[in-house]
């Protein structure tokens, strides 16, 4: 049994897939920063940002539904922003009184909550596009290109490699627990045991997983040492960016700046 569903990468040959991972990572970050910088209620800018997101999604050949479905995962967090419709001062949209007091919903409050949810939704889709079209080894190379310390990138790589191995082990542990979890035929016994007991069983599984990982970590070090590992992270240099890729990078950054300027001018 292999945990394949963990990896969100979808192999493909679309223009977004073919774009250099360094350019993709940089532009994704630029897009998200731009989205964060656009003022609340700057609807024109949001529409432009959405047009960009939509274009990228269509260019990936993965189908828009894939992105929309995954992006809705972040929406529950928007609950944290919801109370702002009452607390932000502004033109009243609706007011009502109840036993607990008077509630006023302000236009500015609604504007802000909708803006926050939109920003989050747009940023999320761009991040999904990056993960869905970029194989992780290329993301690692892009991280190195962005000057993330090599040692940290090496640990990221090891983690990703063993994520699948350990997720398989965790699933086996869960299966073993499920196989032994049964209800007594005598209905008077409650199934599942007390919460503390359940937590202890789960904790034991986590401990088991950690123990195996410690042992595996030692064996991996042996395997690395056997091939001359000396504590330094070494990789082959990346090929230089081609002119076309530079152009896309520059163009993308320029669009981000333009959208920001537009948002400011209109404000």
């Amino acid at each position: 049994m292999h945990v394949h569903f963990l990896d969100p990468y979808h192999a493909g040959g679309s223009p977004i897939h073919r774009l250099d991972a360094r350019v993709k990572l940089a532009l994704t970050l630029a897009f998200i920063i731009t989205t964060s910088l656009v003022p609340f209620g700057a609807w024109a800018a949001y529409i432009l940002l959405f047009a960009i997101v939509l274009s990228v999604e269509l260019l990936t050949d993965l189908g828009i539904a894939y992105f929309f479905k995954r992006a809705f995962l972040a929406l529950p967090f928007a609950l944290a922003a919801l109370p702002l419709i009452f607390t932000v001062q502004g033109a009243p949209l609706a007011t009502w009184s109840s036993g607990a007091g008077t509630f006023t919903i302000s236009v500015e409050g609604v504007e802000r909550v909708v803006s926050i949810a939109l920003k989050s939704w747009l940023s999320m889709q761009m991040a999904i596009a990056l993960a869905a079209t970029t194989a992780f080894p290329q993301l690692l190379a892009a991280m190195r290109a962005l000057r993330i310390p090599k040692l940290l990138v090496a640990i990221f790589g090891l983690m990703w490699r063993y994520l699948f191995v350990l997720a398989d082990e965790a699933l086996r542990l869960l299966r073993a627990r499920a196989a032994r979890s049964s209800a007594s035929r005598d209905a008077q016994y409650k199934t599942g045991g007390a919460i503390v007991w359940r937590a202890r069983v789960t904790g034991g599984m986590a401990g088991n997983l950690l123990l195996r990982s410690f042992e595996r970590g030692d064996r991996i070090y042996d395997a690395m040492a056997a091939r001359g590992y000396d504590g330094e992270a070494r990789v082959l240099p990346m090929p230089a960016l081609q002119a076309a890729q530079w152009l896309i990078l520059g163009g993308g950054l320029a669009v981000c700046v333009l959208i920001l300027l537009l948002a400011l001018l209109l404000a």
Partner: peptide, 11 residues
């Protein structure tokens, strides 16, 4: 510790 940290992060 380098491989150990990678594996423990995965764990």
């Amino acid at each position: 510790q380098v491989p150990m940290m990678g594996v423990l992060a995965a764990a």
